[in-house]
Simulated assay, not measured.
Amino acid sequence: MVSAVCVYDAHGRLLTVRKRGTDKFMHPGGKPEAGESAAQAAARELAEEVGIVLPPEALQPLGRWLADAANEAATRIDATVFTAPGIWTAAPSAEIAEIRWLDLAGELPGDLAPLLTDHVLPLLAAARDAGA
């Protein structure tokens, strides 16, 4: 089980992070600690990884998917994804090697996690097209 958060900047770009020792960009997020709900884990990880502090109840559920793990071969993850309302800036913590803001209208890089490419980005694109 993992929790992840979609975070946007003032230009509508989606925040992605690459954790130290990995090669894929993904949402900020991670595994819940004992007794944490998915939203509590997402809020904690968001603060720990990129310095964005939000109460868990402020996060808006986006969906839950089974996806291939980005950095663990032959592993599937059960991921609950939230959206952080508002516009944000982010600063990487020690566990984050790099942050990148992803322009959803542009060409997508090939180093994105499967949860993003297979589930979240198609959902966001469908919602954007429906609103156009």
Rank of each mutant, 00 (worst) to 15 (best):
H27C: 15
P32K: 01
A34C: 02
A105Y: 05
A10R: 15
P109C: 04
V17E: 00
A74W: 06
G29I: 00
G21P: 04
V50D: 08
R18N: 01
V5P: 00
T22D: 00
R64P: 01
P92E: 07
A67N: 11
K19I: 07
E72K: 15
T117D: 02
L124E: 11
D103H: 09
A67Q: 07
A94Y: 12
A67P: 02
A10I: 09
L62F: 14
A79T: 12
V17M: 01
S37C: 06
R76H: 10
G131Y: 03
L121N: 08
L66Y: 07
L112S: 08
A79I: 13
A69L: 01
P92M: 12
E36D: 04
L102M: 14
G29H: 00
E95P: 06
I96E: 03
R64T: 07
W88A: 15
E33W: 09
P122V: 08
E48T: 06
A127E: 11
A70N: 09
G86H: 12
T75F: 07
G21D: 01
E98W: 05
A73M: 10
D129H: 13
M1E: 06
R76P: 04
R44A: 08
V120H: 09
P122Q: 10
M1T: 11
E72N: 07
P32S: 02
L108M: 14
P28H: 03
R18P: 00
T89Q: 14
L14K: 02
A125G: 09
A38F: 03
S37E: 03
E98G: 09
G86S: 12
D129W: 08
P122M: 10
E98F: 05
F25Q: 01
A90N: 12
E98L: 09
V5C: 05
V53I: 13
A132K: 15
A132Q: 14
K19T: 14
P92G: 09
T80K: 12
E36T: 09
P92W: 08
E49G: 08
E95M: 10
A94S: 15
A91Y: 08
A34G: 03
